[in-house]
Simulated assay, not measured.
Amino acid sequence: MDDESLAREGVRARLAAHADLHWVGEAGDGDEALRVMEALKPDLVFMDVQMPGICGIDVLRHMEPDRRPLAILLTAYEQFAVDAFALHALDYLLKPIDDQRFREALDRARTAMRHRGHAESAQGEYEWTERLSVRVGLRTVIVEASDIDWIEASGDYAGMHVGQQVHLLREPLHKLSLRLRPTAVSAHSSFDHRAT
């Protein structure tokens, strides 16, 4: 969902290289995006943050969390990242989109859809990382995933914000997010899923 047709074509072209994902629709503004998602019920959406009408983040906010598709947000601006993670967006890609980051976002989406499928078939009994160990000086501290308020990327590290503290974990954010339950943090065989 993007107001720029060239951006939509770019996402479509990149998705064409992935046989396990099928493009089912698109929209050029926020109001249309909401209608398209409610009608097609995609598993995954690529949502531009800034669109005419309702912005992409508000489109997702309008949907009930249990009916909201997994989302990868696209934008030219970094300042929307906190809002993106508050909506449990899978990833946040800056324009112009880097091919490697696009593939990483798709890997994260595949993991999330696989876990979502297991949750539906096994009543939520699958293994997410519930605790993380981080070094604080000479000691190791255990951080509960449910206590993390939000996470930020810091090069090869992830900065986990827990209350007033920030714990650095030597793991890139995009890899850490594959291990954490998507709803745990305010900030995942072949299968066949639909994308818009």
Results as ranks from 00 to 15, higher is better:
residue 1 M to C: 12
residue 3 D to E: 02
residue 3 D to C: 00
residue 4 E to M: 08
residue 6 L to F: 14
residue 9 E to K: 12
residue 10 G to F: 04
residue 12 R to M: 13
residue 13 A to Q: 12
residue 13 A to D: 09
residue 14 R to Y: 06
residue 19 A to F: 10
residue 20 D to N: 12
residue 21 L to F: 15
residue 22 H to Y: 03
residue 23 W to S: 02
residue 24 V to T: 11
residue 25 G to D: 05
residue 25 G to H: 07
residue 25 G to V: 08
residue 26 E to F: 10
residue 27 A to H: 02
residue 28 G to I: 04
residue 28 G to S: 12
residue 31 D to M: 00
residue 33 A to G: 11
residue 34 L to W: 14
residue 34 L to F: 11
residue 35 R to L: 11
residue 40 L to E: 14
residue 41 K to E: 15
residue 41 K to P: 02
residue 42 P to N: 08
residue 43 D to C: 04
residue 43 D to F: 04
residue 46 F to L: 01
residue 46 F to I: 06
residue 48 D to F: 01
residue 49 V to M: 00
residue 49 V to C: 02
residue 51 M to T: 09
residue 55 C to T: 07
residue 60 L to H: 08
residue 60 L to S: 06
residue 62 H to F: 06
residue 63 M to D: 09
residue 66 D to Y: 13
residue 66 D to I: 13
residue 69 P to L: 03
residue 69 P to E: 03
residue 70 L to G: 09
residue 70 L to I: 00
residue 72 I to F: 04
residue 72 I to W: 04
residue 73 L to S: 00
residue 73 L to D: 00
residue 74 L to C: 11
residue 77 Y to L: 14
residue 78 E to I: 09
residue 78 E to P: 02
residue 84 A to C: 14
residue 86 A to W: 09
residue 86 A to S: 13
residue 87 L to H: 07
residue 87 L to K: 09
residue 93 L to W: 12
residue 94 L to D: 10
residue 95 K to V: 06
residue 98 D to K: 00
residue 102 F to L: 03
residue 103 R to Q: 14
residue 105 A to R: 05
residue 106 L to E: 01
residue 107 D to W: 05
residue 114 R to D: 08
residue 114 R to N: 06
residue 115 H to L: 11
residue 115 H to A: 11
residue 122 A to T: 12
residue 128 W to I: 01
residue 128 W to P: 05
residue 130 E to V: 01
residue 131 R to M: 09
residue 131 R to I: 01
residue 131 R to Y: 15
residue 131 R to V: 03
residue 133 S to N: 03
residue 134 V to T: 04
residue 134 V to A: 04
residue 135 R to H: 12
residue 137 G to E: 06
residue 137 G to A: 08
residue 139 R to L: 10
residue 139 R to D: 15
residue 141 V to L: 07
residue 142 I to E: 15
residue 144 E to C: 00
residue 145 A to K: 05
residue 145 A to L: 01
residue 147 D to I: 08
residue 148 I to L: 06
residue 149 D to S: 06
residue 151 I to D: 07
residue 155 G to Y: 12
residue 156 D to G: 05
residue 157 Y to P: 05
residue 158 A to D: 00
residue 159 G to L: 09
residue 159 G to N: 10
residue 160 M to P: 09
residue 161 H to C: 02
residue 162 V to S: 04
residue 162 V to K: 04
residue 163 G to K: 08
residue 163 G to S: 03
residue 165 Q to K: 14
residue 166 V to K: 13
residue 166 V to C: 11
residue 167 H to A: 01
residue 171 E to R: 13
residue 172 P to N: 07
residue 172 P to K: 08
residue 172 P to W: 08
residue 175 K to D: 13
residue 176 L to H: 10
residue 179 R to W: 03
residue 179 R to S: 11
residue 179 R to A: 11
residue 180 L to C: 07
residue 182 P to M: 02
residue 185 V to F: 01
residue 186 S to T: 15
residue 186 S to P: 13
residue 189 S to N: 06
residue 190 S to V: 10
residue 190 S to F: 15
residue 190 S to M: 14
residue 194 R to M: 05
residue 195 A to Q: 00
